[in-house]
Structure formats: structure tokens, C-alpha cells
Design a protein around this nucleic acid. Sequence first.
RNA 1: GCCCUGGUGGUGGAAUUGGUAGACACGCAGGACUUAAAAUCCUGUGACCUUUGGGUCGUGCGGGUUCAAGUCCCGCCCGGGGCACCA
Length: 966
Amino acid sequence: MLCFKAVVELIKMEFNHQSIEAKWRTQWVEKQTYKVSNDAQGKPKFYVLDMFPYPSGAGLHVGHPLGYIASDIYARYKRLEGFNVLHPMGFDAFGLPAEEYALQTGIHPAKSTNDNIKQYRAQLANLGFSFDWSREVVTCEPKYYKWTQWIFTQLYANYFDQASNKAESIASLEETFSKDGNATVKAANSYTEVFTAAQWNSMTALEKQDVLSHYRLAFRQVGYVNWCEALGTVLANDQVIDGVSERGGHPVEQKAMTQWYLRITAYADRLLYGLDNLEWSDALKAMQSNWIGRSEGASVFFDVEGSDEKVEVFTTRPDTIYGATYMVLAPEHDLVKKLCTADQKEAVEAYIKGVKSRTEIERMAEKQVSGAFIGAYAINPFTEKKMPIWIGEYVLAGYGTGAIMAVPSDDDRDHSFATKFGLDIIDVVDKSKYPNATNADKVGVMINSGPLNGLEVKEAITEACRQIESRNIGKAKVNYKMRDANFGRQRYWGEPFPVTYSADGIVSMLPKEALPLTLPDTTDFKPGGEGKSPLSRIASFAQLENGVTRETDTMPAVAGSSWYFLRYMDPHNEEAFASESALKYWQDVDLYVGGAEHAVSHLLYSRFWHKFLFDKGYVPTEEPFKKLINQGMIQGVIESIYLLREKKDGDYHFMCAKMIEKMGIEDAVPMPVHVSFVSDYGTAQSHLNIAGLKSFIKWRPIYGDAYFECDKGTLHKGRWIAKEDAEDSFLLTKSEVGKMSKRYYNVINPDEVIAEHGADVFRMYEMFLGPIEQSKPWDINSISGVSKFLKKYWTLFFSEEKFQLSDEDPTKEELKIFHGTVKKVRQDIERFSFNTCVSAFMECVNNLRKLNCNKRAILEPLNILLAPFAPFVTEEIWKELGHTDSVHISAYPQFEEKYLIEDSISYPICINGKKRALHDFPADTSKQDLEKQALALEVVKEWTEGKDIKKIIVVPNKMINIVVVG
RNA sequence: GCCCUGGUGGUGGAAUUGGUAGACACGCAGGACUUAAAAUCCUGUGACCUUUGGGUCGUGCGGGUUCAAGUCCCGCCCGGGGCACCA
């Protein structure tokens, strides 16, 4: 009979992840294993940051942890390397979905957000992350957004001085104005007039405010929003599909509204050149730099025939001005109304109406050119010819000046426009010397261009700018594609602006002492009238004494996420967003891991805010994120079923994807279905059986009476009408790989996977899926490989069915396996290649098992090596090994090259680059001997017989290639 | 449309600097153990040809550079992400 102890040992041999994980989760919290202090204790600092999640109602999905696991492994590795590691987590908690949810259900966004956060926290805890939760930040909490509001007031109180190339206070600008006017001021601004000190001093307060707002980094101006009259609300781009509202399919138009903006363009050059010093991927840098879109060119004013108005254009090709035969204005351009002639009015208005219903993306993606002639003519200052003025949607109001001089000979879009509308095309660049050049290459020799003739394009650009300036019709200019950031949202669930307006329109910012301005409570989240936010209907908030009103727009979600990484450094500070000492100690983020979908917006805004705070002396570094890794997306499969346009006997009619294809039906509408209804999800055979169809009907009751037809039969009103005795439906769905998102009903929750396989397996499996930076669809099928690996690993520590290790000295072979693994794992962690780390562990365990290795000298350090990847099982083993402290605060093993030296090297021997043999040579064989010995081999003789040996290439430790002719 | 990115066996992927293509897994096939199944273990597994020695082809497609190309260059095709109010 087995004694009690032996039974315990036997049970232990069966590795049970559930009890182990629960135990250590609790202990880590109790012992504050991952709590980090701002006190260095002689350790160097290291800051590992994740992009914090938006707590969506769908819960954490399998895509979220990918980056978190990678950063957690790295953070744990750095900790074991002796660094003081800051590895925090928090929640980006303001946002549209919570408000939409409130509109549908009446549940307050604060409540649903809080519930979601609770769920996220629990889910994150299951994964065994080493976050210091005492530093959690939540952007919707007043103690956090107090500082978001404060930073906004600072942006308002500053302008960008181009002479010092940094932010300076508005107070100092006012001083300059009152002494010298604005002629000497070099600042990023949108004010076009020049005034003297006397003129400034005689302005009213309101006039001064207007002038200053053209300089401030936070200012108000008119911008366009997606306005849906039928819903009475402003819509996010995301809520507009094909020009109509996602909800209800109502028309959407562009409505002009005065809103808050941030002058990010002031920092364009610094944001661009700052990229050089960052350890970011070239791809990401390219994306940011393209977004900023710096281009050098000229702004040129064109006279309009019979009018005092001038049309200003920006062009990167002033050299081609002799080829400018017409002009195109954006349909929204101010001059359109003024210059449009009576006989063209009707056509122009009809055109503008059509354009208004289209989103910017649709306009840019449009292949067909379209436009309307407004009846007016500009004069080309160089050729003095008349240029008809058109409007066209390919010219965007927000880019450049919203107007172009069209050069159909050297711009592809202008060319198709001119061809379509029969406008003049004059060749001005002879590209015959460059047969493969495109227009974008900017090469060739000028022709038909008066004094520019014969010049190369590059010289001609300089010369054209010189002439434009000397004629006083324009000047050389740098233009940016990037626009100022729209910072107002007509929504409830965001940070209120700490802004009031007096009865006569004077803007005031709340002082620091009055912050935070808390979001007023309400039960009604419907928008206010005329596109205003729900706050406008809360009188106690919006209307103050003496006719003073509050700003009722709120800030966008990007506000809170633009500086959260600084708050983690000192999250409970009530006097400042973070103390000087905390900022000085932590400096900046050493490693930032997050999705590529944030590559531009979030990362650019954060850099902008950080640079501003740096200018004002609040943060010690100019850039916030030293190194950045973009994890790829774990994609979902979007499963849809086809709804035919035509009803069948008055009922909706769904049809199998295969039949749709066979019958060549083109206008059927794919409708996403919840993936939980789909059988064989994610495969070519993904389909809905009868049970799946019934779940679908329950989920979308409106289709209760629909026909669901596939080649096995039809389901109608709960009755299955079979073809050829088929017992079940096999309605094939359309499967597309795409974002895992609540809106596609394809979110896969990690909880079940963890419950079944354990967090260690889940962590290692997500890493094993592939390179961290690559996107890949979620696939659970091969998780068993990782599960088997951990079970095998566990049993390494057992001998004679007991947890026990041998204290014998390891063999040369065992040492080689171990040190080879240490080397590989260390190198691969450093290059963020975690999938190959997992492979290396698998190989190591397979090899040690073959040798029946049970030696402490190997397995104990191996356990530390694995700890960052599988924190639970390694902690349990560590305790069983007799340690009382945590494995996660031990020291990472070093490798010693001496154990890795090979006695012989296996060389592939190639003839003309093709491998013909494999042969072992002693590792110290010289190059000459390798050549000689290789040629003497039987196989080589066979292949070289009767042929000339031209050359022998020996790459030490790699290969031998013999080149033969004949 | 523009910008970024990826494409390698049946599947996920490996090959870090131009140097043995397919590591490590999954799946599949065969075998061992078992009354049986599960679990576990072992063997095989890119395709085609084969006299069983081996040979030919093969990294989305078409060209090119090189002794040598998955990797570099040119031109295409297809998937994914972003395009300023989803986060």
C-alpha cells in the first residue's frame, strides 16, 4: 500500500496548472513581488510599457495579451538581469463605445466602464503579468484627468516660437506685441495681417483674443464634422459607412462647427527630425514621416480676371508653372461662392451637394475624376494666359491652400482631369533622357517654359521660386500634409474642457486650483441640439452666473493617452502630474510595446505633448519612447452569411456562399454573424448547421421568418425542408481574415483557453504562434504542442516518481545542451524573437529527456531561464527545489562559450551552388586543407570528372562550393 | 487612390550578416502499450521521378545580379493595417 506521502508525490507528477496558478497569483499579490519603488537602491532603471487597453464590453480578447506577454517576458528578464523595472498597467477609459452603449441601455458610461475594467483586471491577473498594480492609472478618473485638463490649459497659455524653436508663453508674446507689434515675431501661427504696437494696444480685449488665438497651441477654429440630421448627432468616421450612418443608414453631411484644435503643425519639423534618434522600425518611422508629409515648394498667388480676389496655391513643382493651364479649388473653398458665375451656379451647387455626402477617404480613393467649371478665369502670371477655374473633389480643403494650379503634363491626376474635361495640356518637361522616370521622380529638362528652358528640373525649381519671389507673387514655402489636431468632441464621455466664456465672448481657463472640472452626472446621454454635446443640456454645468457659459464639448480619447506613461512614474501625486524626482529617475520609456494600428495618431500626439512638456521644463527628455516594438495583430475570422437583395414570398432570403458563387449572384449582402454560431470556424468548410441558424435567429429575431437556403435544403420558420434526405443544414459562410473586434462578432476570449490549458501554456503558445511583429489569424489547433512541452518539462524534475534531483556533475553533452539554450534564449529575447525562444526550450527539453538528465546543476538554472516565459510553473518548481524566495528575483543564467566549442564541423559540399555531399572536418582544419580534402572526396570526384575546376569557395564554418565548367 | 507591411510543405512558422530551405510544433500515416478508448511513446511525412545509389523541381508571379538568392535589384499579383472623430 502506498503511504500518504507517496500518493502526494504521484499526484504531483501529474502537473496541475489550476491549483498552482491560483496559489501563486495570491502569493505574488500578498508579498508584493512586483511592486517597484522610485528609489534606485543602486540598480539601473528600466521602463517597460504596454499600450493600455480601452476596456471594451467584449472583454479582453486573445489579441490583447500578445504584446503584454512579450513585454512581460522582457520586463521579467530585465528584472532578473538586475534592473529596477517599472512595468505598469492602466486603462484608456474614455471613449465612444461606452457612450453608445449608454444610449442603447441607459447604463451610465462610468458604470459600464468600471465593470469592464474589473473584468479586464481579472483577465489580466489570470495571465500572470508582473504589473505593479499599485501604479494603475484610469483616464476617466477625476484625479487623473485633472492633469489632462491642466496640460490643456498650458497648451492654451503657450505659442510656438520659431526663433527659439520651442514653446514660449503667450504672456511674453503679448509683451512683444505691445512693444513691437507682430512684424518681428517668428511664430507658428495662422494670422495673416501685420500690425504695429500702436494698433495692438488700441485693440479691444476681444480683438486681442482673436489675434492671440491664431498663435496659441490650443485654439478654436471652424472644422467639419459628420453631421447626421436624422439622428440629430455628430458621428465618428467609424460610424459612417458608404456616406450614410451605420445605425439606420441615414444620410450624413459635412457640417462646419467651431471647435478646439491643437497646433501640432507647429512641432512638425521637430516631430520629423526627432525620429532619427529613436530605436523604432524604419517602417514606423516612414509612416510617421509620411503622415507629417513635409514638402518644399512655393505658394503662388494668381490674379482672377475681373476680380480683386487672388487664388493662393501651394505647389511642389513651381518649375512647371508654364504648363499650368487651369486651376482647381476644393469644393469647400471660400472663393467658390464669390467667383462662381450665374450661369454655372446651378451645376456648381449640384456638384457640391454630391461631394458633401462623401467622406474624405472616399474622395481620395475615387478613381474617376469629377469636377465642375465655376465660370471664372485666373491669369497665369508667366504665360499670361487665361486659366479656367474648376472645382474638383480630388483637391482637399485641408491640404495646402485647398487650391492647386493644374499641370496636366506633369501630374497624373491633373492629366486625367484635363483629358476628361478637354482642357489644354502643354508639355513642359522633356523626360526623354530618363526613359523609366515617373512624374514623381522630378527629373527632366524644361521646355516651352520661357527663361526656364534647358534647365534640369531641380535647378528649375530653385529658379522658378526666385522669379516668383522677385515678381512678388508668392514665395518659397515648406508645406506639411499633417493638419492641426481637432480636439473637440460633441460627446458626453470625455474630459470636460476647463473653459468658460463670458457673456461678451472672452475665453477663460480654470486655474490649477479649480481643477479637476468634473464631468457632471446625468441619466440622459442624447446629444444636445444642433450638434452640441449632451453637456449643453445640463444647465447647472453649462450656464453659470452673469451669462458666463462653459464649453460643452469634451476632449477626444487621445487626450488621456497622450501622457499616461508619465503618470505611472508617480501616480498618486496631487501637486503635479508627476514629481520632478520621479521624472528625473524614470526619465522615459525604454521599451514600448503596442499595436501598429496606433503607429501614427497616438504615437504622434504623445510625442507632441511630450515635446511641449519638455519645452516648458516639466519632463527631462525630448522624446517619450526610446525603443518601440509593434506587435502584429491577432486577427479573427469574420464569418458572414449572404442576404439576397430580393425577398422570397415576402420573407428575407439567405443563401449559402457556395450557391451564391455558383449562380453568379453579385449583389448579395454579406452580413457578419457571431462566430460562436459557426461550425468549423476559420476553415474553408465554415458553415451554419440548423443549431447555428437557430442561434442566429435568436440573436437577430428580425430574421425569424427568413429562408436559409443551402444545397442540402432550406430552413424556414423553424422547419427543415431537406433536399435528398440531408439531415442537417450546411450553409457555407464567407470567411475573411480581419480585425478581431466586437463589431465583427468574432472576439475570442482567452479565459476558456487559460482554464483548460493554464496561463503558462497560453503565454508560451501566443509567443510560439510566430514573430511578435507579424499579424496572424488566431488558431487554437496547435496549442497541444506547448502543453505537452510543459508537461515534459515538469517531469524532468522527477525521478523514481518523486520530485527529486541528482547532485551529480553534469556531462559535457548536458552542459553543451544547456549553455547552447542559454545563448540562444538570451540572444532571441534581446531581438524580441520569442517564438524561437520557445522552440529552443522545446529542443532543450527533448534533448535532456533523451539523456535522462535529472541533474540539479542543469535543471535549476534552466528553471530560471524559463521563468519569464512560464512564471507559474517555474515558481512552483523553485519552491519544490527548496528555495524560500521567488524565482523571479533570482539571477538570469549566463552562458559560457567553452561548453559550446565543437570538435568537428559538418560542411555541405556544393558543386556550382548545389549541395552534393555533407562531410565532417575537424574544426581547426585550415582553408587550404579544406579545399584539398574536399576535392579528394569520392562524391566530389564523381561530379567534377572531366570538368574544369574554376574556383573553390570556402566559407569557414559554413560551406564549401566548387565551381566547375564543362 | 496614397502610405506601411506580409506572401516559404496540408497548417503555424525556422533560416539573425547572400552560404545546407523547411528547425520547432500542429496535422496526417504507420507502429508499440491497452479488452477498448484516451493519454503516452516510437517511426515516417515538400512535390515528382527512381534501377532505392540517388536524381529533378521547389520560398506568390515574371525578369535580373552573383560561384551562391527565401534573403539583393526591376516589374507585376494577392492578403493585412493605417488614412486624421473606433480605440
